[in-house]
Amino acid sequence: MSYNIPETSKTYLVTGAAGFIGFHLSKQLLEQGCNVIGIDNINDYYDVHLKYARLEVLKPFTSFSFVKGDIADQAGLMALFETHKPNVVIHLAAQAGVRYSIENPDAYIQSNIVGTHNVLEACRHHPVEHLLYASSSSVYGTNEKVPFEESDRVDHPVSLYAATKKSNELMAHTYSHLYQIPATGLRFFTVYGPLGRPDMAYFGFTQSYFAGRPIRIFNNGNFEQDLYRDFTYIDDIVEGIERLLHRPPAAEEKAPHRVYNIGNSHPEKLMVFIETLERCLSQSLGREVCIEKIFEPMKPGDVPATYASTSLLEEAVGFKPKTSIEEGLQRFTDWYCDYYRLN
């Protein structure tokens, strides 16, 4: 990335720093000479070895400080703010996953509701220049109007995960209004890439292939009404966040709070995505790859399509995600084969 957005004199607090997006953002900030404080509880929702591998990449940076802690621990989070006095907070820590929210709802209340409330309280008592926080395309639920725009109604979430993310937006708006905290919500659309999350479909498909297992596709085998997803490469997500870091909503407004979509604005059929994954794996391995597939009904909480309008983001910072799935998936499969020593 050739642009230089962050102000290196500032201190940036990244919650969820050992997570997928948190790691990549922290790395980018550190490479540009910024002072980054990371916090993560390293939970076992997915393979913790991957989280520690991300932290190993960040460890050599002398301007990086890591705190193993839980944002649901209000006293610990307040102490972190008191000690490090961050100028900008990027709140990415959350319990992720749509289907897991049906199996383990308590984790979502603790991390996404209690944890976000604690971050807002910390920003209230230790004022920051800008709070950016992760929302999700899941808030759009079964919205049939495409592309999804930030002005669309998002009152019908179809999973607890989506409900917690919508709650985060409401909570942030309220704190912004009451305490003039400049806050920006980021609705991410299906983020993928190297060192990604194993619970995401593309990662799981790849794991299944190497384990000799078929993959399960939840589209009823209906290729005409296939699932569509707005797949967004991790570098585009990071660039979008960086460009917004020092563009807080206007302080003179009653609620200095804004929400932006960050998506590729080019939804792909899930089957096209899988075919591209097969081609990229073939390229990485030097042999033809064909993944066995089983078709099943859609699962509760799934939505048929996601499609981001990024007009507001383009207007605000002149940026639109642009990485194609061919380019992004090739980078992922090259990393995967190297990381798991499959070459």
Rank of each mutant, 00 (worst) to 15 (best):
G97F: 03
T190V: 13
N4R: 14
F231T: 01
N43Y: 10
L120P: 02
L131D: 01
T306R: 00
G115S: 07
I291W: 06
S309Q: 02
A17K: 01
A308W: 02
I217L: 15
Y228S: 00
L285P: 13
G97A: 07
A93T: 12
K166R: 15
N118L: 06
S159Q: 05
I90Y: 02
F295D: 06
H24T: 10
D226P: 06
V119H: 02
L55G: 05
T323V: 15
D70H: 05
I90T: 10
R243D: 03
N118M: 02
S167A: 15
G141V: 09
K59Y: 10
D338W: 07
H91E: 10
E242K: 12
H49V: 03
N43M: 01
A172L: 12
K27T: 02
N222Q: 08
P300V: 03
K68A: 12
P60V: 09
F231K: 01
N343P: 12
P157S: 03
D230S: 08
F148Q: 15
I215N: 06
F23H: 14
V317A: 04
L227M: 12
T306I: 04
S265E: 07
I241K: 00
A17R: 03
I217M: 15
S167E: 07
V98N: 03
G33I: 08
N4E: 13
Q110S: 13
G196L: 04
R258F: 11
S159I: 08
I90V: 15
